[in-house]
Nucleic acid binder design. Structure first.
Length: 565
DNA sequence: ATGGGTCCT
DNA sequence: AGGACCC
Protein backbone atom coordinates (compact mmCIF):
# COMPACT_ATOMS: atom_id res chain seq x y z
CA UNK A 1 0.00 0.00 0.00
CA UNK A 2 1.12 3.48 -0.82
CA UNK A 3 2.26 5.37 2.24
CA UNK A 4 0.21 8.37 1.18
CA UNK A 5 -2.87 6.21 1.04
CA UNK A 6 -1.99 4.78 4.43
CA UNK A 7 -1.79 8.24 5.96
CA UNK A 8 -5.13 9.12 4.49
CA UNK A 9 -6.88 6.19 6.09
CA UNK A 10 -5.70 6.29 9.69
CA UNK A 11 -6.94 9.65 10.69
CA UNK A 12 -9.17 9.37 13.73
CA UNK A 13 -8.01 6.17 15.33
CA UNK A 14 -9.22 6.79 18.86
CA UNK A 15 -12.68 6.75 20.35
CA UNK A 16 -13.20 8.81 23.49
CA UNK A 17 -16.17 9.13 25.81
CA UNK A 18 -16.46 11.99 28.26
CA UNK A 19 -18.74 11.31 31.22
CA UNK A 20 -19.84 14.28 33.25
CA UNK A 21 -22.00 13.72 36.31
CA UNK A 22 -24.89 16.16 36.33
CA UNK A 23 -24.62 18.71 39.16
CA UNK A 24 -22.73 16.12 41.15
CA UNK A 25 -22.85 17.57 44.67
CA UNK A 26 -26.53 18.42 44.31
CA UNK A 27 -27.38 14.92 43.13
CA UNK A 28 -25.58 13.38 46.09
CA UNK A 29 -27.44 15.67 48.47
CA UNK A 30 -30.75 14.78 46.86
CA UNK A 31 -29.97 11.13 47.48
CA UNK A 32 -29.06 11.86 51.08
CA UNK A 33 -32.16 14.01 51.59
CA UNK A 34 -34.94 12.49 49.49
CA UNK A 35 -37.42 15.05 50.81
CA UNK A 36 -35.46 17.67 48.86
CA UNK A 37 -35.68 15.73 45.56
CA UNK A 38 -38.44 17.85 44.10
CA UNK A 39 -37.30 21.19 45.48
CA UNK A 40 -34.78 23.72 44.25
CA UNK A 41 -31.59 22.80 46.08
CA UNK A 42 -28.27 24.54 46.49
CA UNK A 43 -25.06 23.17 47.94
CA UNK A 44 -23.43 25.72 50.18
CA UNK A 45 -19.81 26.16 51.12
CA UNK A 46 -19.19 29.14 53.33
CA UNK A 47 -21.19 31.97 51.84
CA UNK A 48 -21.35 30.51 48.38
CA UNK A 49 -23.71 28.22 46.50
CA UNK A 50 -21.14 26.09 44.76
CA UNK A 51 -23.66 24.16 42.73
CA UNK A 52 -27.37 23.54 42.56
CA UNK A 53 -29.83 21.10 41.10
CA UNK A 54 -31.50 21.80 37.79
CA UNK A 55 -34.69 22.97 39.45
CA UNK A 56 -32.73 25.70 41.19
CA UNK A 57 -30.98 26.59 37.96
CA UNK A 58 -34.33 27.48 36.45
CA UNK A 59 -34.36 30.40 38.84
CA UNK A 60 -31.11 31.62 37.37
CA UNK A 61 -28.88 30.29 40.10
CA UNK A 62 -25.33 29.84 38.84
CA UNK A 63 -22.27 28.09 40.17
CA UNK A 64 -20.44 29.96 42.91
CA UNK A 65 -23.12 32.57 43.37
CA UNK A 66 -23.34 34.19 46.78
CA UNK A 67 -26.01 32.82 49.11
CA UNK A 68 -27.72 36.21 49.31
CA UNK A 69 -27.98 36.50 45.57
CA UNK A 70 -29.25 32.96 45.23
CA UNK A 71 -31.93 33.49 47.87
CA UNK A 72 -33.07 36.64 46.13
CA UNK A 73 -33.58 34.70 42.93
CA UNK A 74 -35.24 31.81 44.75
CA UNK A 75 -36.38 32.51 48.33
CA UNK A 76 -37.57 28.93 48.82
CA UNK A 77 -34.16 27.53 47.84
CA UNK A 78 -33.14 24.68 50.12
CA UNK A 79 -29.52 24.85 51.14
CA UNK A 80 -27.33 21.97 52.23
CA UNK A 81 -23.83 22.44 53.56
CA UNK A 82 -21.30 20.80 51.32
CA UNK A 83 -18.03 21.79 52.95
CA UNK A 84 -17.26 18.23 53.98
CA UNK A 85 -16.54 16.34 50.79
CA UNK A 86 -16.66 12.88 52.35
CA UNK A 87 -19.90 11.79 50.72
CA UNK A 88 -18.92 13.20 47.36
CA UNK A 89 -15.60 11.41 47.52
CA UNK A 90 -17.50 8.24 48.32
CA UNK A 91 -19.86 8.47 45.37
CA UNK A 92 -17.03 9.54 43.10
CA UNK A 93 -15.18 6.34 43.95
CA UNK A 94 -18.29 4.27 43.23
CA UNK A 95 -18.73 5.93 39.87
CA UNK A 96 -15.09 5.29 39.03
CA UNK A 97 -15.53 1.61 39.84
CA UNK A 98 -18.42 1.39 37.42
CA UNK A 99 -16.37 3.09 34.71
CA UNK A 100 -13.58 0.60 35.36
CA UNK A 101 -15.97 -2.22 34.49
CA UNK A 102 -15.67 -0.94 30.94
CA UNK A 103 -12.01 0.03 30.71
CA UNK A 104 -9.04 0.82 32.94
CA UNK A 105 -8.35 3.81 30.69
CA UNK A 106 -10.25 6.31 32.79
CA UNK A 107 -8.88 9.77 33.46
CA UNK A 108 -10.59 11.78 36.17
CA UNK A 109 -10.72 15.55 36.48
CA UNK A 110 -12.14 16.36 39.85
CA UNK A 111 -14.83 14.17 41.34
CA UNK A 112 -17.32 14.15 38.50
CA UNK A 113 -15.52 14.51 35.20
CA UNK A 114 -14.16 11.48 33.38
CA UNK A 115 -12.53 10.61 30.08
CA UNK A 116 -12.63 7.04 28.83
CA UNK A 117 -10.57 5.78 25.93
CA UNK A 118 -12.86 3.09 24.54
CA UNK A 119 -10.91 2.51 21.35
CA UNK A 120 -10.07 -1.08 22.13
CA UNK A 121 -13.47 -2.11 23.42
CA UNK A 122 -15.10 -0.61 20.37
CA UNK A 123 -12.72 -2.70 18.32
CA UNK A 124 -13.75 -5.79 20.23
CA UNK A 125 -17.37 -5.16 19.42
CA UNK A 126 -16.57 -4.68 15.76
CA UNK A 127 -14.64 -7.94 15.67
CA UNK A 128 -17.00 -10.18 17.56
CA UNK A 129 -20.30 -8.40 17.61
CA UNK A 130 -20.12 -8.57 21.33
CA UNK A 131 -17.78 -8.58 24.25
CA UNK A 132 -18.10 -11.58 26.43
CA UNK A 133 -15.89 -10.03 29.09
CA UNK A 134 -18.41 -7.29 29.60
CA UNK A 135 -21.85 -8.54 30.34
CA UNK A 136 -23.31 -5.91 28.13
CA UNK A 137 -24.62 -6.47 24.69
CA UNK A 138 -25.00 -3.91 22.04
CA UNK A 139 -27.34 -3.99 19.14
CA UNK A 140 -24.89 -4.00 16.27
CA UNK A 141 -27.67 -4.14 13.69
CA UNK A 142 -28.83 -0.64 14.48
CA UNK A 143 -26.61 1.74 12.59
CA UNK A 144 -27.97 4.79 14.31
CA UNK A 145 -26.22 6.48 17.18
CA UNK A 146 -27.80 6.68 20.61
CA UNK A 147 -28.58 10.22 21.72
CA UNK A 148 -27.96 13.47 19.97
CA UNK A 149 -25.53 14.12 17.17
CA UNK A 150 -23.88 17.47 16.62
CA UNK A 151 -23.66 18.67 13.04
CA UNK A 152 -24.18 16.84 9.76
CA UNK A 153 -23.40 13.16 9.40
CA UNK A 154 -24.15 12.41 5.78
CA UNK A 155 -20.78 11.43 4.44
CA UNK A 156 -18.76 8.84 6.26
CA UNK A 157 -15.13 9.43 6.99
CA UNK A 158 -12.95 6.96 5.05
CA UNK A 159 -11.03 6.07 8.20
CA UNK A 160 -13.98 4.19 9.60
CA UNK A 161 -14.38 6.35 12.67
CA UNK A 162 -18.03 6.85 11.84
CA UNK A 163 -19.11 3.38 12.90
CA UNK A 164 -16.69 3.38 15.82
CA UNK A 165 -18.25 6.51 17.21
CA UNK A 166 -21.73 5.07 16.78
CA UNK A 167 -20.74 1.98 18.75
CA UNK A 168 -19.20 4.24 21.38
CA UNK A 169 -22.50 6.08 21.68
CA UNK A 170 -24.10 2.76 22.60
CA UNK A 171 -21.37 2.07 25.12
CA UNK A 172 -21.86 5.54 26.60
CA UNK A 173 -25.56 4.85 26.97
CA UNK A 174 -24.76 1.59 28.70
CA UNK A 175 -22.33 3.32 31.05
CA UNK A 176 -24.91 5.93 31.97
CA UNK A 177 -27.52 3.25 32.47
CA UNK A 178 -25.33 1.23 34.80
CA UNK A 179 -24.46 4.31 36.83
CA UNK A 180 -28.13 5.10 37.15
CA UNK A 181 -29.12 1.53 37.93
CA UNK A 182 -26.48 1.13 40.63
CA UNK A 183 -26.37 4.60 42.15
CA UNK A 184 -29.41 6.51 40.93
CA UNK A 185 -27.11 9.18 39.59
CA UNK A 186 -27.52 10.69 36.14
CA UNK A 187 -24.68 11.69 33.85
CA UNK A 188 -24.23 13.38 30.55
CA UNK A 189 -21.80 12.10 27.94
CA UNK A 190 -19.90 13.35 24.94
CA UNK A 191 -18.53 11.02 22.29
CA UNK A 192 -15.77 12.06 19.92
CA UNK A 193 -12.44 11.01 18.49
CA UNK A 194 -10.45 13.12 20.94
CA UNK A 195 -10.78 14.48 24.46
CA UNK A 196 -11.41 18.07 23.42
CA UNK A 197 -14.35 17.19 21.19
CA UNK A 198 -15.82 14.63 23.57
CA UNK A 199 -15.80 17.11 26.40
CA UNK A 200 -17.11 20.09 24.46
CA UNK A 201 -19.84 18.22 22.64
CA UNK A 202 -21.15 16.69 25.84
CA UNK A 203 -21.96 20.17 27.12
CA UNK A 204 -24.52 20.69 24.37
CA UNK A 205 -27.25 18.49 25.81
CA UNK A 206 -27.55 18.24 29.56
CA UNK A 207 -28.61 16.88 31.95
CA UNK A 208 -28.97 13.14 31.50
CA UNK A 209 -28.28 13.16 27.78
CA UNK A 210 -25.44 12.38 25.43
CA UNK A 211 -24.09 13.88 22.26
CA UNK A 212 -21.86 12.50 19.55
CA UNK A 213 -19.66 14.43 17.18
CA UNK A 214 -18.15 13.14 13.96
CA UNK A 215 -14.73 14.49 12.99
CA UNK A 216 -16.09 16.40 10.03
CA UNK A 217 -17.98 18.66 12.44
CA UNK A 218 -15.00 19.35 14.67
CA UNK A 219 -14.14 22.79 13.32
CA UNK A 220 -17.80 23.70 13.40
CA UNK A 221 -18.13 22.79 17.06
CA UNK A 222 -15.14 24.93 17.93
CA UNK A 223 -16.66 27.81 16.02
CA UNK A 224 -19.77 27.69 18.17
CA UNK A 225 -17.66 28.37 21.25
CA UNK A 226 -18.10 32.01 22.10
CA UNK A 227 -14.79 32.58 23.87
CA UNK A 228 -11.32 31.10 23.89
CA UNK A 229 -11.71 30.74 27.65
CA UNK A 230 -14.02 27.77 27.00
CA UNK A 231 -11.12 25.78 25.61
CA UNK A 232 -9.87 23.46 28.34
CA UNK A 233 -6.46 24.68 29.44
CA UNK A 234 -7.24 28.32 28.80
CA UNK A 235 -7.74 29.82 32.20
CA UNK A 236 -7.92 33.32 33.57
CA UNK A 237 -4.34 34.34 32.86
CA UNK A 238 -4.23 33.04 29.32
CA UNK A 239 -7.62 34.57 28.58
CA UNK A 240 -6.37 37.96 29.75
CA UNK A 241 -3.22 37.60 27.71
CA UNK A 242 -5.20 36.71 24.62
CA UNK A 243 -7.76 39.45 25.18
CA UNK A 244 -5.06 42.06 25.48
CA UNK A 245 -3.94 40.92 22.05
CA UNK A 246 -7.45 41.19 20.68
CA UNK A 247 -7.96 37.47 20.51
CA UNK A 248 -11.37 36.66 21.93
CA UNK A 249 -12.95 34.00 19.78
CA UNK A 250 -11.77 30.77 18.26
CA UNK A 251 -11.97 32.54 14.93
CA UNK A 252 -9.53 35.18 16.19
CA UNK A 253 -7.26 32.32 17.17
CA UNK A 254 -7.45 30.87 13.67
CA UNK A 255 -6.64 34.20 12.09
CA UNK A 256 -3.57 34.73 14.26
CA UNK A 257 -0.44 33.29 12.65
CA UNK A 258 1.26 30.66 14.77
CA UNK A 259 4.51 32.60 14.90
CA UNK A 260 2.74 35.68 16.22
CA UNK A 261 0.85 33.66 18.80
CA UNK A 262 4.01 31.91 19.97
CA UNK A 263 5.55 35.25 20.83
CA UNK A 264 2.54 36.25 22.85
CA UNK A 265 1.71 33.19 24.89
CA UNK A 266 4.66 30.88 24.47
CA UNK A 267 5.44 28.19 22.00
CA UNK A 268 3.77 25.22 23.68
CA UNK A 269 0.49 26.90 24.46
CA UNK A 270 0.37 28.57 21.05
CA UNK A 271 0.71 25.27 19.23
CA UNK A 272 -1.85 23.63 21.43
CA UNK A 273 -4.40 26.39 20.90
CA UNK A 274 -3.85 26.51 17.15
CA UNK A 275 -4.57 22.79 17.06
CA UNK A 276 -7.55 23.10 19.39
CA UNK A 277 -9.05 25.84 17.24
CA UNK A 278 -9.40 23.25 14.48
CA UNK A 279 -10.71 20.61 16.84
CA UNK A 280 -7.37 18.81 16.91
CA UNK A 281 -6.25 17.32 20.20
CA UNK A 282 -3.78 14.47 20.38
CA UNK A 283 -3.53 14.32 24.15
CA UNK A 284 -4.10 10.84 25.45
CA UNK A 285 -6.41 9.65 28.17
CA UNK A 286 -4.04 9.28 31.07
CA UNK A 287 -5.44 6.75 33.52
CA UNK A 288 -5.77 8.36 36.89
CA UNK A 289 -3.86 6.44 39.50
CA UNK A 290 -3.54 7.03 43.18
CA UNK A 291 -3.68 10.58 44.36
CA UNK A 292 -0.46 12.57 44.42
CA UNK A 293 -1.61 14.46 47.49
CA UNK A 294 -4.31 14.22 50.11
CA UNK A 295 -5.26 17.47 51.72
CA UNK A 296 -7.88 19.32 53.69
CA UNK A 297 -8.59 23.02 53.82
CA UNK A 298 -10.65 25.26 55.99
CA UNK A 299 -11.51 28.79 55.01
CA UNK A 300 -12.86 31.40 57.39
CA UNK A 301 -13.34 35.10 57.96
CA UNK A 302 -10.32 35.62 60.14
CA UNK A 303 -8.12 33.74 62.55
CA UNK A 304 -5.63 35.80 64.57
CA UNK A 305 -4.79 33.65 67.56
CA UNK A 306 -2.22 30.90 67.71
CA UNK A 307 -4.52 28.85 69.91
CA UNK A 308 -7.19 28.90 67.25
CA UNK A 309 -4.70 27.98 64.58
CA UNK A 310 -3.71 25.04 66.72
CA UNK A 311 -7.24 23.81 67.30
CA UNK A 312 -8.19 24.15 63.63
CA UNK A 313 -5.05 22.40 62.46
CA UNK A 314 -5.66 19.69 65.03
CA UNK A 315 -9.14 19.08 63.66
CA UNK A 316 -7.86 19.03 60.09
CA UNK A 317 -5.10 16.62 61.00
CA UNK A 318 -7.48 14.18 62.68
CA UNK A 319 -9.52 13.94 59.53
CA UNK A 320 -6.44 13.90 57.34
CA UNK A 321 -4.89 10.93 59.11
CA UNK A 322 -8.17 9.06 58.66
CA UNK A 323 -8.05 9.72 54.95
CA UNK A 324 -4.45 8.57 54.85
CA UNK A 325 -5.39 5.34 56.60
CA UNK A 326 -8.16 4.75 54.07
CA UNK A 327 -5.73 5.36 51.25
CA UNK A 328 -3.43 2.71 52.64
CA UNK A 329 -0.15 4.28 51.63
CA UNK A 330 2.39 5.84 53.93
CA UNK A 331 2.68 9.62 53.69
CA UNK A 332 6.22 10.94 53.70
CA UNK A 333 5.76 14.69 53.57
CA UNK A 334 3.46 17.25 55.11
CA UNK A 335 2.48 20.57 53.60
CA UNK A 336 0.88 23.47 55.39
CA UNK A 337 -1.09 26.08 53.49
CA UNK A 338 -2.11 29.49 54.77
CA UNK A 339 -3.86 32.40 53.17
CA UNK A 340 -3.23 35.75 54.77
CA UNK A 341 -5.85 38.44 54.76
CA UNK A 342 -5.14 41.02 52.11
CA UNK A 343 -6.06 44.49 53.34
CA UNK A 344 -5.40 46.57 50.27
CA UNK A 345 -7.28 44.24 47.99
CA UNK A 346 -10.88 43.17 48.01
CA UNK A 347 -9.98 39.64 47.03
CA UNK A 348 -8.14 37.37 49.43
CA UNK A 349 -4.43 37.05 49.21
CA UNK A 350 -2.43 34.30 47.67
CA UNK A 351 -1.65 31.09 49.42
CA UNK A 352 1.68 30.35 50.97
CA UNK A 353 2.87 26.83 51.61
CA UNK A 354 5.62 25.21 53.62
CA UNK A 355 6.54 21.59 53.31
CA UNK A 356 8.70 19.21 55.28
CA UNK A 357 9.46 15.56 55.62
CA UNK A 358 7.25 13.53 57.88
CA UNK A 359 9.55 11.79 60.36
CA UNK A 360 8.89 8.11 60.32
CA UNK A 361 8.12 7.83 63.98
CA UNK A 362 5.06 9.99 63.50
CA UNK A 363 3.56 7.42 61.21
CA UNK A 364 1.30 4.65 62.43
CA UNK A 365 3.57 1.83 63.44
CA UNK A 366 2.57 -1.77 63.11
CA UNK A 367 2.31 -1.78 66.87
CA UNK A 368 -0.08 1.06 67.55
CA UNK A 369 -1.61 1.31 64.08
CA UNK A 370 -2.48 4.90 64.72
CA UNK A 371 -0.98 8.31 64.13
CA UNK A 372 0.52 10.26 66.98
CA UNK A 373 -1.68 13.28 66.72
CA UNK A 374 0.15 15.39 69.25
CA UNK A 375 3.37 15.09 67.32
CA UNK A 376 1.64 15.61 64.00
CA UNK A 377 0.22 18.82 65.37
CA UNK A 378 3.58 19.89 66.72
CA UNK A 379 5.04 19.40 63.28
CA UNK A 380 2.25 21.33 61.60
CA UNK A 381 2.70 24.17 64.09
CA UNK A 382 6.40 24.28 63.28
CA UNK A 383 5.49 24.74 59.65
CA UNK A 384 3.03 27.40 60.69
CA UNK A 385 5.70 29.36 62.51
CA UNK A 386 7.83 29.13 59.41
CA UNK A 387 5.15 30.83 57.31
CA UNK A 388 3.67 33.31 59.79
CA UNK A 389 5.65 35.77 61.88
CA UNK A 390 3.66 35.57 65.10
CA UNK A 391 5.56 38.42 66.73
CA UNK A 392 3.31 40.68 64.71
CA UNK A 393 -0.48 40.54 64.42
CA UNK A 394 -1.73 38.19 61.72
CA UNK A 395 -5.07 37.59 60.06
CA UNK A 396 -5.53 34.32 58.26
CA UNK A 397 -8.44 33.42 56.02
CA UNK A 398 -7.47 29.83 55.32
CA UNK A 399 -5.57 26.95 56.82
CA UNK A 400 -4.82 23.74 55.02
CA UNK A 401 -2.75 20.68 55.63
CA UNK A 402 -1.87 17.93 53.20
CA UNK A 403 0.20 14.82 52.79
CA UNK A 404 2.12 15.16 49.58
CA UNK A 405 4.30 12.16 49.04
CA UNK A 406 3.59 8.52 49.58
CA UNK A 407 5.21 5.17 49.70
CA UNK A 408 3.42 1.93 49.20
CA UNK A 409 2.68 -0.01 52.34
CA UNK A 410 4.50 -3.04 51.11
CA UNK A 411 5.33 -5.65 53.63
CA UNK A 412 6.62 -8.98 52.48
CA UNK A 413 10.11 -9.81 51.54
CA UNK A 414 9.45 -9.33 47.85
CA UNK A 415 8.97 -5.61 48.15
CA UNK A 416 11.53 -3.18 46.88
CA UNK A 417 11.58 -1.71 50.36
CA UNK A 418 12.99 -4.70 52.08
CA UNK A 419 15.16 -5.48 49.13
CA UNK A 420 16.92 -2.14 49.20
CA UNK A 421 17.22 -2.29 52.95
CA UNK A 422 19.07 -5.56 52.85
CA UNK A 423 21.05 -5.46 49.65
CA UNK A 424 23.75 -2.96 50.46
CA UNK A 425 25.90 -4.72 47.91
CA UNK A 426 23.57 -3.78 45.11
CA UNK A 427 23.68 -0.16 46.11
CA UNK A 428 27.43 -0.10 45.77
CA UNK A 429 27.13 -1.64 42.33
CA UNK A 430 24.70 1.05 41.33
CA UNK A 431 27.28 3.61 42.37
CA UNK A 432 24.99 6.36 43.48
CA UNK A 433 26.93 7.47 46.52
CA UNK A 434 27.69 11.05 47.46
CA UNK A 435 26.01 13.00 44.75
CA UNK A 436 25.21 16.55 45.75
CA UNK A 437 25.42 15.82 49.41
CA UNK A 438 22.42 13.54 49.48
CA UNK A 439 24.42 10.42 49.98
CA UNK A 440 22.97 9.43 53.30
CA UNK A 441 19.38 10.09 52.56
CA UNK A 442 17.06 7.21 53.17
CA UNK A 443 19.83 4.74 53.55
CA UNK A 444 18.79 2.97 56.69
CA UNK A 445 15.02 3.13 56.63
CA UNK A 446 13.87 4.17 53.23
CA UNK A 447 10.22 3.37 53.31
CA UNK A 448 7.71 1.27 55.08
CA UNK A 449 7.27 1.48 58.80
CA UNK A 450 5.94 -2.02 58.84
CA UNK A 451 9.31 -3.45 59.58
CA UNK A 452 9.42 -1.08 62.51
CA UNK A 453 13.07 -0.30 62.60
CA UNK A 454 12.30 2.36 65.13
CA UNK A 455 13.87 0.66 68.10
CA UNK A 456 12.74 1.86 71.45
CA UNK A 457 9.68 3.48 69.99
CA UNK A 458 7.31 1.40 72.02
CA UNK A 459 7.40 3.80 74.92
CA UNK A 460 6.39 6.73 72.77
CA UNK A 461 3.93 5.20 70.35
CA UNK A 462 1.05 4.76 72.75
CA UNK A 463 -0.79 6.95 75.20
CA UNK A 464 0.69 10.30 74.53
CA UNK A 465 -2.13 12.69 75.38
CA UNK A 466 -2.78 15.64 73.13
CA UNK A 467 -2.25 18.01 76.00
CA UNK A 468 1.22 16.76 76.71
CA UNK A 469 3.68 19.56 76.03
CA UNK A 470 6.24 18.82 73.41
CA UNK A 471 9.84 18.61 74.46
CA UNK A 472 9.43 18.25 78.18
CA UNK A 473 10.37 14.63 78.46
CA UNK A 474 11.54 11.92 76.14
CA UNK A 475 14.19 14.14 74.73
CA UNK A 476 15.32 12.05 71.81
CA UNK A 477 11.93 11.58 70.17
CA UNK A 478 10.80 15.10 70.70
CA UNK A 479 14.02 16.49 69.41
CA UNK A 480 13.31 14.56 66.29
CA UNK A 481 9.96 16.17 65.91
CA UNK A 482 11.37 19.61 66.30
CA UNK A 483 14.55 19.21 64.38
CA UNK A 484 13.58 17.02 61.47
CA UNK A 485 11.84 19.84 59.77
CA UNK A 486 14.63 20.27 57.36
CA UNK A 487 13.40 20.54 53.80
CA UNK A 488 12.56 17.29 52.17
CA UNK A 489 15.42 15.39 50.72
CA UNK A 490 15.34 16.34 47.08
CA UNK A 491 15.67 12.83 45.85
CA UNK A 492 15.89 9.35 47.17
CA UNK A 493 18.95 7.37 46.30
CA UNK A 494 17.01 5.55 43.66
CA UNK A 495 15.83 8.80 42.15
CA UNK A 496 19.30 10.26 42.19
CA UNK A 497 20.57 7.26 40.36
CA UNK A 498 17.72 7.38 37.90
CA UNK A 499 18.13 11.06 37.15
CA UNK A 500 21.82 10.48 36.61
CA UNK A 501 20.98 7.84 34.06
CA UNK A 502 18.44 10.13 32.43
CA UNK A 503 20.94 12.85 31.84
CA UNK A 504 23.37 10.57 30.14
CA UNK A 505 23.66 11.53 26.48
CA UNK A 506 22.19 8.50 24.81
CA UNK A 507 19.03 8.62 26.88
CA UNK A 508 18.37 5.00 27.56
CA UNK A 509 15.13 5.93 29.21
CA UNK A 510 13.55 6.70 25.89
CA UNK A 511 14.57 3.32 24.60
CA UNK A 512 12.90 1.74 27.54
CA UNK A 513 9.69 3.66 27.23
CA UNK A 514 9.45 2.81 23.60
CA UNK A 515 9.31 -0.89 24.27
CA UNK A 516 5.76 -1.47 25.38
CA UNK A 517 5.62 -5.06 24.30
CA UNK A 518 8.83 -5.94 26.10
CA UNK A 519 9.20 -3.45 28.90
CA UNK A 520 12.20 -5.21 30.35
CA UNK A 521 14.24 -4.74 27.23
CA UNK A 522 17.29 -2.59 27.76
CA UNK A 523 19.78 -0.90 25.57
CA UNK A 524 23.19 -2.51 25.91
CA UNK A 525 24.69 0.50 27.64
CA UNK A 526 22.39 0.36 30.63
CA UNK A 527 23.26 -1.67 33.66
CA UNK A 528 21.46 -4.69 32.39
CA UNK A 529 23.53 -7.02 34.50
CA UNK A 530 22.65 -5.15 37.63
CA UNK A 531 19.01 -5.09 36.79
CA UNK A 532 18.92 -8.73 35.86
CA UNK A 533 20.50 -9.60 39.16
CA UNK A 534 17.39 -8.37 40.90
CA UNK A 535 14.40 -10.62 41.51
CA UNK A 536 11.88 -10.30 38.71
CA UNK A 537 9.31 -8.43 40.74
CA UNK A 538 11.92 -5.96 41.91
CA UNK A 539 12.96 -5.45 38.33
CA UNK A 540 9.41 -4.52 37.56
CA UNK A 541 9.23 -2.11 40.42
CA UNK A 542 12.43 -0.43 39.37
CA UNK A 543 11.53 -0.11 35.72
CA UNK A 544 8.06 1.05 36.62
CA UNK A 545 9.54 4.01 38.38
CA UNK A 546 11.65 5.15 35.47
CA UNK A 547 9.20 6.97 33.34
CA UNK A 548 7.87 8.98 36.24
CA UNK A 549 11.29 10.18 37.25
CA UNK A 550 12.18 11.04 33.71
CA UNK A 551 10.14 13.58 31.86
CA UNK A 552 8.16 12.40 28.90
CA UNK A 553 6.90 15.43 27.05
CA UNK A 554 3.53 16.17 28.44
CA UNK A 555 1.05 14.34 26.31
CA UNK A 556 2.06 11.71 23.86
CA UNK A 557 1.44 8.13 23.11
CA UNK A 558 4.15 7.06 25.52
CA UNK A 559 1.69 7.58 28.30
CA UNK A 560 -0.05 4.46 27.24
CA UNK A 561 3.00 2.57 28.35
CA UNK A 562 3.69 4.31 31.58
CA UNK A 563 2.37 2.53 34.58
CA UNK A 564 0.48 4.77 36.83
CA UNK A 565 0.54 4.14 40.53
C1' DA B 1 -15.18 32.82 45.74
C1' DT B 2 -15.10 26.72 47.91
C1' DG B 3 -12.57 22.46 48.87
C1' DG B 4 -10.55 19.91 46.68
C1' DG B 5 -6.98 18.27 42.95
C1' DT B 6 -3.25 18.20 38.65
C1' DC B 7 1.20 19.33 36.49
C1' DC B 8 4.98 22.66 35.26
C1' DT B 9 8.57 26.14 36.34
C1' DA C 1 7.40 27.24 46.76
C1' DG C 2 4.71 29.26 43.61
C1' DG C 3 1.87 29.41 39.59
C1' DA C 4 -1.01 27.89 36.06
C1' DC C 5 -4.74 24.90 35.17
C1' DC C 6 -9.08 21.62 36.19
C1' DC C 7 -13.63 20.53 38.62
Amino acid sequence: MDSIEFDAIIRHPRTIIHIDVDCFYAQVEMLRHPELQSKPLGVQQKNIVVTSNYLAREYGIKKCMSVEEALQLCPELALVNGEDLTHYRHYSAKILKILHRFTPLVERLGFDDNFLDVTSIVQKYMNSGNDSELNISINMEDEHPVGKVFGPSEEECPCGCHSRLIIASKIAAEIREQIYKDLHITCSAGIGHNKLLAKLVGLLHKPNQQTLIFPCSAAMLLSTIESVSKIPGVGQKTTQLLMSNNIKTVDDLRKTPLEALEKKIGIDLARKLKDNAEGIDETVVKPTGKRQSIGLEDGFKSVSLIAEVESRLGALLRRLTELAMEDGRIPVAMRLTVRKHDFNKSASGKRETRQCALPKHLLPSSKSGIYDHAKMLALAMKLFHRTVDVSKPFHLTLLGVAFTKFEERSSGKNSITSFLRKQVAVQSVLDISSEEGVSDINLGSPMSVNQDSNDGSAMSTTSSPISKPIGTNNQTVDDDVLNEIEPLPKKTRLEVWLSGRRESPSNEMADLRLSPSSPMQLSPKIDAAVLKSLPIDIQREVTRSWPTTSKPKSNNILKYFIANK
